[in-house]
Design a protein around this nucleic acid. Structure first.
Lengths: 181, 181
DNA sequence: CCGTCCATTGACAGTGACTGCCATATCGGG
DNA sequence: CCCGATATGGCAGTCACTGTCAATGGACGG
């Protein structure tokens, strides 16, 4: 999977997303086109794939017993992502930039994020004893996710020079402050 | 365009999104498949199309001179959408439910919303004299958009029984309050 | 009433994403 | 050595989407 993703990024950076077919990606990665679809659901999935996305929800859930919701999300993010953004800075930068420069990929990413938002709302609801469709729960989840994606994009826009952790903290601080300008 | 959209909704409600081809939609609407693509960019676009989406940004911009950002967005939304949600309740309900029950459509909607978020951030930036990539600007825009989409989905989830205007106000109140639970 | 122009549409062919199906290879355990 | 499980390749088919060209039909000046 890594080989396929690497080949795909290579080609798309050189020639653009639409101008690269799955067949070409498969050729460069030395697999059959059919095999690409065995490992990834879609062409977009090849670029979005990331090994460490799943455990975040669990981290949030554990912390919810102790700290308020926004705080739980913030801490979980620090725990799981600060390291990755520091150690693999060039790779992450490359991939994030690619995703947000290709509309198709940005949309697919947004879809993934949206699934995560729903899951987060469910966790917040069960932790606070509220209903999952409670407006307050939904708004909190949406705002938290929003701050996170903004932090990611801001990190990439600044070439990864400002620490990701700092951007996350600043974003959540703005949320907690009631969003005055 | 209305005829095509009506035909499309009809078919998809009966048989599901994937089971309906553009060719069938075209047939029911009594046009050629090619003509569908003359009016809509994609199959998804057929369902997302809505005549009154564009003026919102202008409304926000004018109000920004007078009231704070969150307030400007809230008021502009009231001005432009309260009416539509009241007068065409069954139609809006049908379309919103359809969109959010089909992953492909939800993703496409999200993409549209994201474009709007970027535009909103740009407006907020120019109105406050800040840079468009200012983290605070981005977070405010993301949170506002989040509250709006939550309001829309909450409205549909409650069968349109709670007034849309009320849900919007409640959402923005939660944002302004710092998002405690 | 007729020819001309313009815009909208239909028909057709082609590309590429994605899927189902079947044959083949590879490999650890009996 | 064999056997079952799992991964892979090849192939054919569907469907979204695009470029191109020809036909249609209505508006308008003559």
């Amino acid at each position: 999977m890594q080989a396929i993703q690497a080949a795909a990024i290579e080609l798309v950076e050189a020639r653009g997303y639409d101008a690269v077919s799955v067949e070409e990606i498969a050729m460069l990665a030395e697999v059959s086109p059919r095999s690409v679809y065995r490992h990834f659901e879609t062409k977009e999935g090849v670029f979005l794939w990331d090994e460490g996305d799943l455990p975040l929800l669990e981290e949030v859930a554990t912390r919810l017993a102790i700290v308020p919701p926004l705080e739980a999300v913030r801490l979980a993010v620090h725990q799981l992502f600060d390291g990755r953004f520091d150690t693999d800075r060039p790779g992450m930068l490359r991939r994030i930039r690619l995703i947000y420069s290709v509309p198709e990929l940005e949309a697919a990413a947004q879809r993934q994020i949206d699934e995560f938002r729903h899951a987060l709302a469910a966790i917040l609801a069960s932790a606070t004893g509220r209903n999952a469709d409670d407006l307050r729960i939904q708004v909190v989840a949406a705002a938290a996710i929003g701050a996170l994606t903004v932090a990611i994009q801001a990190w990439a826009a600044r070439n990864g020079e400002r620490p990701f952790a700092e951007l996350v903290d600043e974003g959540f601080q703005i949320l907690a402050g009631g969003l005055q300008l």
